[in-house]
Computed example of a mutant assay.
Amino acid sequence: MTRSRKMCFISMTAALGAAALSACAPGEIPLDTRIANALPARIVQASGETEAVATANADAADDPAIWRNAAAPAQSLIVGTDKKAGLYVYGLDGKVRDFTDAGRVNNVDLAEHDGRIIVAASDRNDPLNAHIALFALDRTTAKLSPLGRVASGAGEAYGICLYRDAGTLYAFMVIKDGTIRQVALDLTGAAPAGRIVRTMKLGTQSEGCAVDPANARLYVAEEDVGLWRFDARPGGAVAPVKVAAADGKAIVADAEGVAVADGYVVVSSQGDNAYAVYRLSDEAYVGRFRIAAGALGATEETDGIEVVAGDFGPAFPDGLMIAQDGSNAPRAQNFKLVRWGDIKRALGL
C-alpha cells in the first residue's frame, strides 16, 4: 500500500500560513497526514540501487545482506532475496552477479566462518516447517554454492540473523508467529547440521532481527508492537526487554527490518516509510530519516534493511545502508544503496 503525504516547501502563496510552514524544519519531510503523532524525519537520498528482481507485479524483494571486502572494498557484494524465487548477488554498482533458484526464501544474513562466507536464508518453501537454507559465497566469482538445508522446528520461517560465539555459528530463526529459535550450525560434514539450543517467544507476528556481537544482544522487531532485545548467548536468559514501542511516534507499525552497526540499531518504520535509529549503549532514540527521491527514487514500504560501517570504496567511503524498496514502478521491486555517512550527518551523529 502506498501512502501519500505532503512535502514541505516554501511558497509565496498567501494561503500558506506561518503555522503550515513551521510544521517541518529545514531538511525534513512532514508527517503523513494520517499519522499525527509520528516524529519528524530527516531527508537522505540514495546513491545507488540494484537491478530489479525478476518477479514483477508482486511483493517480492525483501531482505539484503552485505559482505564487505576488506582487501578491495569497492568489490564488496550484496545478497538480496526475491521471496518468490531465490537469492541474488549484486555488486556495489547494482548489477546482478549471480542468481540462485532457492524458491521461497524470505530473509537473509551472512557471516565469515572458518574461512568461508556463509549465507543463511529463512526457507519457507514448507510453510508448516521452518528450514535454514545455507550457501557459500565465493568472494572472487560472486557465485553462491548451495550447502544444504537445516530443519529449525515447526512453523513458517520468516526472519533470520547469524551470530558467532566461541567458535560456533548460530542462526536465530524467527518464526512468523513470534517464536525465535537459536540454532547451532555444524558445517564440518558433507551436509550441514543444526541443533536447537533454546527457544524464545514474542506474542505476535515478528520478522526482522539483527545481533550486536560486541554486547551479545539480539534485536527482534515484533511488527505491531515494537523492538525487543534478548540475550544472544546460547546460555542466556530468554525473557525479552522492550527497547521501543511501535506507538506511531518513532516507529509506525509495521516495525520491519532491523540492522545493527557502528554503535546504532536501525528499524524500518514501514507504516510511514521512515527509519528509526537508537544508540546501542543506552538504547536511546536519536532520530529518524527517510530515503527521499533524488537522482534515484525514494523508498517506500521497506521490509529488510542492512547497515555495515567502514570503507566501501569511492562511492561509499564511510559505510553503506541498503533498504528494500517496496514501490519501484515501473520496474519490479529492488534495493536502494545509501551512504551511511550521509545518514549520520543528517541526524547529527
Rank of each mutant, 00 (worst) to 15 (best):
328 N>D: 14
324 Q>V: 08
327 S>K: 10
317 P>W: 05
314 P>T: 01
347 L>M: 05
345 R>N: 08
334 N>Y: 03
348 G>Q: 13
319 G>R: 07
332 A>S: 15
323 A>Q: 06
319 G>C: 03
343 I>L: 13
329 A>I: 11
335 F>A: 09
313 G>R: 09
313 G>N: 08
342 D>Y: 08
316 F>H: 02
339 R>W: 11
335 F>L: 05
313 G>E: 12
314 P>K: 03
323 A>W: 00
311 D>V: 15
339 R>M: 10
320 L>R: 02
330 P>M: 04
323 A>Y: 14
331 R>E: 15
313 G>I: 15
344 K>H: 06
315 A>N: 01
335 F>P: 03
338 V>S: 05
338 V>P: 00
344 K>L: 06
348 G>R: 09
334 N>M: 00
348 G>Y: 14
341 G>A: 09
315 A>Y: 00
313 G>W: 13
330 P>N: 05
311 D>R: 15
324 Q>I: 02
348 G>L: 09
331 R>W: 09
348 G>W: 05
324 Q>L: 08
333 Q>R: 11
320 L>F: 11
328 N>W: 02
348 G>C: 12
322 I>Y: 05
338 V>I: 11
347 L>H: 04
322 I>Q: 09
332 A>Y: 13
343 I>N: 06
314 P>I: 01
334 N>E: 05
320 L>D: 03
329 A>F: 09
328 N>T: 04
340 W>C: 06
348 G>V: 04
331 R>D: 15
312 F>S: 14
335 F>K: 04
326 G>Y: 04
309 A>H: 05
329 A>W: 04
337 L>C: 02
315 A>E: 04
344 K>V: 13
315 A>M: 03
311 D>P: 15
342 D>P: 14
337 L>Y: 10
337 L>F: 11
309 A>D: 14
341 G>Y: 12
338 V>L: 00
337 L>W: 06
318 D>H: 12
314 P>M: 14
308 V>H: 06
335 F>Q: 07
340 W>E: 00
308 V>K: 11
315 A>C: 07
310 G>A: 00
324 Q>D: 07
333 Q>Y: 04
343 I>H: 08
339 R>Y: 07
313 G>T: 13
341 G>M: 14
336 K>S: 13
331 R>G: 14
341 G>R: 00
313 G>F: 15
335 F>G: 04
331 R>I: 10
310 G>D: 07
327 S>A: 12
338 V>R: 02
320 L>M: 01
317 P>F: 07
336 K>Q: 06
326 G>C: 04
340 W>N: 03
326 G>I: 06
345 R>M: 08
323 A>L: 03
329 A>R: 13
341 G>H: 08
341 G>D: 13
342 D>A: 15
347 L>R: 01
318 D>E: 15
330 P>I: 10
309 A>T: 00
317 P>R: 11
332 A>I: 04
311 D>K: 14
319 G>E: 02
333 Q>M: 12
344 K>I: 06
315 A>R: 10
320 L>T: 00
337 L>I: 00
335 F>V: 09
329 A>K: 10
330 P>R: 07
343 I>R: 01
312 F>A: 03
323 A>H: 01
311 D>M: 02
341 G>T: 05
325 D>F: 13
346 A>S: 14
347 L>I: 03
342 D>T: 12
327 S>P: 03
325 D>G: 10
322 I>C: 01
326 G>P: 10
334 N>K: 08
310 G>V: 01
320 L>Q: 00
338 V>Q: 05
337 L>G: 02
348 G>K: 07
